[in-house]
Structures are given as C-alpha cells and as structure tokens.
Amino acid sequence: MFGRLFATLFTRKIKKANYVLLVQLIAAIAITVLSFTTSGHVYFGRQDLGVFPSFFMFVLFFSFIAALALYCITCNENEAINVNQSLRLLPISDSKYYLDNIFTSIATLAYFACIEAIGIGISFLLAFQFDGTFHSEVMTSYEKSSFVFNVEDFIVVIQSLILLVLFCLLFYLMLSFLNFSSQAIISFLPGSIKNKSLLGFIRVFLVFILIWALVKGIQALTPIFDAPFAVFFQSTSSNDLLEPISIFICFDLLFIAINLFLFNQYIEPKEKK
C-alpha cells in the first residue's frame, strides 16, 4: 500500500509541478516576445542581448520564482492531504501515510529540479548555438576562469544538494508541526467556542507561541546536536558541509518523530458532507 499510495500522490503532485513548468515556459516565451516586439532590445547590465540569450535569461529568472511557487503549493498540498478523508480511508497506517505524503513532495521537488535543469540546459544550448555573440562571450569567460571541475567540487555539489533536500524537508516538517500542534491544542478547548473568527485568532496566537518555542528549542538543541559531530568532522574543503548535514538530519528525525506522534494521536480527516 505504501508504494501504491506513493505513486498516486506523486502522480497528483507532479501534475501541479507540470502546470508550474508550463506557466514558467509560457511566461518566459511571452516576456521575450513582448520585449522584442515593444522595445526591440533586452539589456542585461550594459549588454544588449539577442533573442535566444534573452529567452535563456528569462527561463533562468523564472525558474527561481517557479521553484518558490511549487514549494508553496506542495506545502499547502501536504497539509490538505493530511486531513483528506478520501485518502485517509485507505488501509495504511497513519505513520506510513504521513511519510508517503511528505516524501512524495520531496520527490516532486526533485522531479521539478530535473526538468528545470533540462529546460535551462536546452535554452542555454539554443543561445550558445544560434547566437554568435553569446557563444563567444561564454567561450571567453570559460577560458578566463581557468575552471577545472575535480572530485572535491563534485562532492561539494552533492553535499549542497543533500543539504538543500534536508532543508526543504525540515521546512515541510516544521509547517506540519505548527499545524498539528495548534490543531491538537484547539481540540482540547471547550466546544462552546463556536465563533470561527475567535478560533482563527486563537490558532494564529498559538502558532506564534509555537514559533517562539520552536526558535528557542532549535537554539538550545543545535549545540547539543553539533557537539558530537564537531569532533568527527575536522574542517577541510570537502567536508565543510557534513556538520550542517548531520545537524539537519537530527532535526529532521526529531520533527518526524514529533509529527508522527501528533498525527497518530490528534489529526482526524476533515468531515465534509
């Protein structure tokens, strides 16, 4: 069931990622066409860019906005799926369900990053192939940089990617934590509070208190998590990121444990008639 639910949620989430990619592509084409039909020029600094380099630049620019948009969409989707009755009826434990949900979002981000990389690569190749000025500029910059990609750089890139994934995961988990814990506290309040605005206000107030507690908790826990790893990882250029990676893993695991407890105990699917 874990695999089947994973495939179902992943299909559902990549559909949204595809929409974001489509909007990004349309926006990049539209703004390139508009720039050339209205002013006839696109400037980057003092550089007058051709059509293909402009398109490449816009694709690159919109990729950051698209990534942020998709991240926000998946955050919202995660929390909606957590309380979705149609899906919670499936014969799977709540823990596996929650993990399926969070990990499909991470998989969706990975899928999105791959498609983005391909898209940026294609638009770069188009500019490189069909724009002589851009081609020579790139070649000159490359020759000047004397850049040599070695194994150590490769390790740093991989570690950075791992760190990014762990950071994205931690943010998803913290968001769930705030949502679950405030919902759990609300479920203990007297049922006589029926005013939705008042309940909303109480929830926002609780979220602020929880954020404050979270910040204090992270500040207190970081040196505790850091201490054992600091001994192991002596600073060299290739293992600079191992320490933060280890700390992030600790926090991710901690929040997974807390969230699973809260999800199992207090988070009921929404009853919609």
């Binding site: 979705n84 009755q85 149609s86 014969p91 929404k270 009853e271």
Partner: peptide, 18 residues
C-alpha cells in the same frame, strides 16, 4: 488494529480527495 479494520470496511466517502 486500525489498518486491519479498514481492510474490512467500505465507508461512504465524501469524495473530497478528488
């Protein structure tokens, strides 16, 4: 067990998941 129980039950769903 909650998971085992669900395997034996078909509940009228509100289709909110779609």
């Amino acid at each position: 067990n909650e998971v085992e129980r669900k395997k034996h039950i078909s509940f009228t769903d509100n289709l909110s998941g779609f």
